[in-house]
């Protein structure tokens, strides 16, 4: 990351010539991307090896995700941080140790180079934190209006240790559901940062990598059944997916849900349900009841799991049904989200 060694780039903004395949493009890539990511070679493909893959019974985990976020920089992160965390987390919740990422950028003509640099710097910082390397990538430049500043696609490869088998269909009646922290911070932070509703808050996105946390859980609770990264659609959607796959019912406790007062405030003002707000660093993990305490204690000893708490249980009710016991012991269904949650006044 030696700034002095970077080739000079005179432009302040990306122009179509930066996508033309010529010298301008090479300069952009070297100046903004490869000088930071430092790939081992400049061949058209990354060549990879890791001892963990060689172990008999080990499996590769492979995932991809595209990232579009408005605003591109928000309290607690930016599109680059999300792009790394999101893919790292998709690997992590499968029990994989994340190893390598690719990163592809669709850049809108006119985007500030300085913005790209900030995005790339936060990707690098997050990748270092997660212990993964960004080993290959691509850039394309599109005309003004054909993209919203920058879209990022990351793919990731990780390795699953031979003794790790996580799958939602392994969840048993009686297993407990744990979340690692407060819900809905990302969704609420983005809503406020967008400014359409003219709300100001101190809420910061929960955007964070969950790789280390997940390994901690697996060590403490060896019979962990399954985990999900509760991103779009929130915890409600993650639970519904898991209930469906497990062919079990899940009941959560309203009083157990960890919510920041400000997130509650945003939800009350706009008539939203925090269970459906997006998270970018929140996992739902099912462990056997007798390993719950160990999992909780281990999670709480980490930064990403400081506020870990049990929110509910799986039981042999109607397959795929998620319900919530309300404050007063009433019950209501927590369904999948239909479309997008819209702010309401009625």
């Amino acid at each position: 990351m030696n700034m002095m060694s970077r080739p000079k780039l005179r432009d302040q903004r990306v122009t179509l010539s930066h996508g033309g395949g010529g010298k301008a493009m090479r300069d952009l890539i070297e100046h903004v991307f490869t000088s930071v990511f430092e790939p081992a070679s400049m061949e058209d493909q990354a060549r990879l090896m890791n001892d963990a893959i060689q172990e008999p019974g080990a499996r590769l985990a492979f995932t991809t995700d595209s990232f579009v976020v408005d605003p591109i920089e928000f309290p607690g992160g930016d599109i680059g941080k999300i792009a790394v965390c999101g893919t790292v987390n998709d690997l992590a919740v499968g029990g994989a140790k994340p190893l390598w990422l690719s990163a592809a950028f669709i850049i809108e003509e006119g985007t500030e180079i300085a913005l790209l640099e900030r995005i790339v710097a936060s990707m690098k910082a997050e990748a270092d934190k997660a212990g993964v390397r960004i080993v290959t990538g691509d850039t394309k430049v599109v005309g003004r209006g054909s993209a919203d500043k920058v879209f990022v696609t990351t793919a990731g490869v990780g390795v699953i240790a031979p003794d790790v088998h996580l799958s939602a269909d392994l969840i048993q009646p009686g297993d407990v559901a744990i979340v690692n922290g407060v819900l809905g911070d990302h969704g609420a932070a983005i809503l406020a940062a967008r400014g359409d509703m003219a709300l100001s808050t101190d809420i910061v996105s929960d955007c964070q990598g969950l790789g280390h946390l997940m390994q901690t859980v697996l060590a403490a609770a060896p019979n962990t059944r399954a985990a999900r990264d509760a991103t779009r659609g929130g915890v409600a959607s993650a639970l519904n997916e898991m209930a469906e796959a497990a062919k079990l019912a899940i009941e959560i406790e309203e009083t157990a849900l960890p919510l920041r007062p400000e997130v509650k405030g945003v939800c009350e003002i706009l008539g939203l349900d925090p269970l459906y707000l997006a998270n970018e660093g929140t996992l739902v993990v099912f462990v056997p009841a007798d390993e719950a305490d160990a999992a909780l204690a281990a999670m709480r000893a980490t930064d990403a799991g400081r506020d870990a708490v049990v929110i509910g249980r799986a039981h042999a009710g109607e397959a795929g049904r998620v319900t919530m016991r309300t404050l007063f012991g009433g019950a209501r269904i927590v369904d999948m989200l239909v479309g997008e949650q819209l702010p309401r006044i009625c």
């Binding site: 109607e318 019950a331 269904i333």
Partner: peptide, 10 residues
């Protein structure tokens, strides 16, 4: 919220 459907829930 399952006004009708919740009765199906165990």
């Amino acid at each position: 919220y399952g006004g009708a459907r919740v009765s199906e829930v165990a």
